[in-house]
Design a protein around this nucleic acid. Structure first.
Length: 153
DNA sequence: GCCAACGTTGGC
DNA sequence: GCCAACGTTGGC
């Protein structure tokens, strides 16, 4: 099993929106960055764990945990001319944007803020801190466990 | 293939 | 609202 971090702007779609969705699931649509797409398409597996990260908000940080429930989904928003994520270059016969479905598992008792993550030396190598603007990124097992420890104190 | 221009992300 | 980081586009 692998670990991931997905960013979302809570004003657009928050962890709590996901908890309110049917079956607490959603197709993670709208990713239009090739590096992020490659993680989704080539490396995400059903059963992998996901940190749900709130970005571009008052207190950026990890707010909940999800599980991947489906993979290899052609992003439907790419084919929808009314969607802001519409991409005329994505052909349904050879979809350009492949994504996953996630299911909410648990809201963290307390948010693990970006400030907290930055303050912990064990987390200094997280992709979150190393690479800006990457909305889908791997998390190591050690990083995952360190962050989970923060909610077990 | 290079690179300037431009657009987006996302913290502050 | 500002701006650094950085991905994409398109002329050459």
């Amino acid at each position: 099993m692998k670990y991931w971090l997905l960013k979302s702007e809570p004003d657009a779609f928050s962890y709590f929106d996901l908890e309110s969705a049917p079956q607490m699931r959603t197709v993670w649509d709208g990713v239009r960055n090739y590096q992020a797409r490659n993680w989704l398409r080539d490396h995400c597996d059903v059963g992998d764990k996901v940190f749900f990260y709130h970005s571009s908000c008052k207190t950026p940080g990890i707010v909940g945990i999800c599980r991947i429930t489906r993979t290899g989904i052609a992003d439907p928003s790419a084919f929808d001319p009314t969607s802001p994520y519409f991409d005329a270059r994505s052909n349904p016969d050879d979809p350009r944007w492949i994504t996953i479905e996630v299911q909410a598992e648990q809201a963290l008792p307390q948010i693990v803020t970006l400030a907290t993550i930055k303050s912990l030396p064990e987390l200094h190598n997280m992709a979150l801190l190393k690479q800006s603007r990457l909305s889908v990124q791997p998390v190591t097992k050690a990083e995952w466990q360190r962050i989970m420890m923060l909610n077990n104190q």
